[in-house]
Structures are given as C-alpha cells and as structure tokens.
Amino acid sequence: MYDPDKRKLLSALSHGSIFFSLLGVSIAIPIVMLFVSDDPVVKENAKEALNFHLNVWLYGIIFGVLTLVLIGFLLLGILQLVNIVLPVMAILHSLSTTEQPYRYPFIFRLL
C-alpha cells in the first residue's frame, strides 16, 4: 500500500511545477518524480505534468509566431489563463482524489 500523504504531496508538486517555469527547473521536477517514485499514481501524474509542460511550450511558440501577424495576443492571453487554471485544478484533484491521476483536457500526450 502506498502512503496517501506522500502520494498527494508528490502529485501536487508535479502539477505545481509549472509555476516555477521562470526558474527554468519546472520540467525537472516531474522528471525527477517519474524516476524516483515507485508509486504508479505519482508516475502517471508526473507524465501528465510533463505532457502539459510540452504542450504549453508548443502552444507558446505557435502563438508567439501568430503574434507577429497581430492575432496571437489574444491567444497568448488565453494560454496564460490556461497555464494558471489547469494546474490549480490538477493540484486540487491530486489532493482530493489520491487513487486516480489527473488528466489535462485538450493536450497531446507524448509520454
């Protein structure tokens, strides 16, 4: 049996790592969780957090290019809102439902 408190903490830390993106270490946190933890729910949450990071970066590049043609400003604003709201929802889900990993909507799953 896995420790539910440890599961909550590590899963929430994986999803919350997106808020450390300015430090440049945000993607390292879920990668470390993926390799260090033996809990399957924590591993799935870490994979989902990695997928979210990659999607946010991809959309940021696409919307940044679209900004050059003056339609990307609105899209960049929406991306910033999504970048805040979805991880908060994931953290709340990780803290309340420890037996099930959170799945971000509308992202490509590369891992």
Score class of each variant (00 low, 15 high):
D39E: 03
L66I: 02
K47S: 08
V42N: 00
S94D: 01
A28W: 13
L74H: 03
T98H: 07
I31R: 07
A49D: 08
V88M: 13
L9E: 13
V42M: 00
P40R: 05
L75G: 06
V69C: 09
G16C: 04
V42F: 04
H53Y: 08
F35K: 09
I62A: 11
K47F: 05
I107D: 14
L92E: 06
I31F: 11
I31D: 06
T97K: 13
S11N: 06
M89Q: 14
S17F: 00
I31A: 11
S94T: 04
G77S: 05
Q80S: 15
I27Q: 03
S94H: 03
S26R: 00
E99Y: 12
V88D: 10
V85I: 15
L79W: 06
K47D: 13
A12H: 02
R7A: 10
Q100V: 15
Y104K: 11
I62H: 07
G16Y: 02
V56Q: 14
L68A: 07
V41G: 08
I31L: 14
E48I: 05
L86T: 06
S14F: 04
M1I: 13
T97Y: 15
N55L: 04
P105W: 11
L76G: 01
E44G: 11
V25Y: 12
G16P: 05
L92V: 15
E99V: 01
L9D: 06
L95R: 05
G16W: 02
N51V: 08
